[in-house]
Simulated scan of single mutants.
Amino acid sequence: MLKTFKFIALLEGISLLVLLFIAMPLKYWLDKPEMVSKVGMAHGVLFILYIVMATVLKNDEKWSWKKYGLICIASVIPFGTFVMEKKLLESKA
């Protein structure tokens, strides 16, 4: 399950970067809002899946509240899920 979570974290991180650095500039600079709705929906679904899986893994893996909190916060910071995966989850495959 941890391996699946890492994959979801990767996808969630990529979707956030695409939303912030591709879709949003297209919306505001080129007046093309359709990308934001598509990428935004995908990112929203991945974000919810990420948080639900983190919550399940907190119990399964016996994570501390601090680790769990850092993992959740990482999901709203650009590049956060990539750093989280390396720093907080590197000890487990």
Rank of each mutant, 00 (worst) to 15 (best):
T81C: 06
Y68M: 10
W63E: 00
V45Y: 03
T55V: 01
I73E: 02
I22Y: 14
I48T: 04
I14F: 11
L30K: 09
G44P: 06
I71S: 09
K86A: 13
V45G: 06
V83R: 05
S75Q: 04
K32Y: 08
N59Q: 13
T81W: 01
G69V: 03
S37T: 10
L57R: 06
K67M: 15
G80W: 03
V36F: 06
G69I: 08
L11K: 06
V83W: 03
S15Y: 02
S37N: 12
I71V: 15
K87E: 14
A23P: 11
C72G: 14
L2Q: 10
M41E: 11
L19Y: 07
I22L: 15
M41V: 04
S75I: 08
F79W: 03
P25D: 11
T4C: 08
L46P: 00
A9I: 07
I48D: 05
D60A: 12
S91L: 10
K6R: 10
D31P: 04
M84S: 13
L20A: 14
L26F: 12
K67T: 12
L70Q: 11
K92R: 13
K38S: 14
K27E: 03
L49N: 05
L57C: 00
M53N: 00
E90N: 13
L20H: 11
S37Q: 11
L20I: 03
M41C: 01
L11A: 15
W29Q: 15
I14Y: 05
Y28H: 14
F82N: 03
Y28G: 12
E85T: 14
Y50H: 02
L16I: 11
W29C: 01
G40M: 00
K6V: 09
F21N: 05
D60K: 15
V45L: 13
Y28S: 10
M53T: 07
M84V: 10
I14T: 14
L10K: 02
L46N: 02
G69N: 10
S64F: 00
E85W: 01
V56C: 01
V45T: 03
F5A: 15
N59D: 04
P33K: 12
L57P: 00
V45W: 05
G44H: 01
T55Q: 01
L30T: 08
L11G: 12
K38W: 13
V52G: 00
I77L: 10
L89I: 14
Y68D: 04
L46M: 08
E34M: 08
L70M: 07
V39N: 10
L19P: 15
K62A: 08
T4V: 14
E85G: 09
T4E: 05
S91Q: 13
W65N: 08
G13Q: 12
T81F: 02
H43E: 04
K62F: 02
Y50L: 01
D31C: 00
C72T: 15
P25I: 01
M24E: 04
T81S: 10
S37E: 13
L16N: 08
K32S: 07
A93D: 07
E34T: 12
F47A: 09
K32H: 09
L89M: 15
K92A: 09
I71G: 02
M41F: 06
L88F: 13
V76C: 08
A74Q: 07
K3R: 08
V76D: 05
W65M: 03
T81H: 03
L10T: 10
V36P: 06
G40D: 05
V39Q: 11
Y28A: 06
V18Q: 05
S15R: 00
K38E: 15
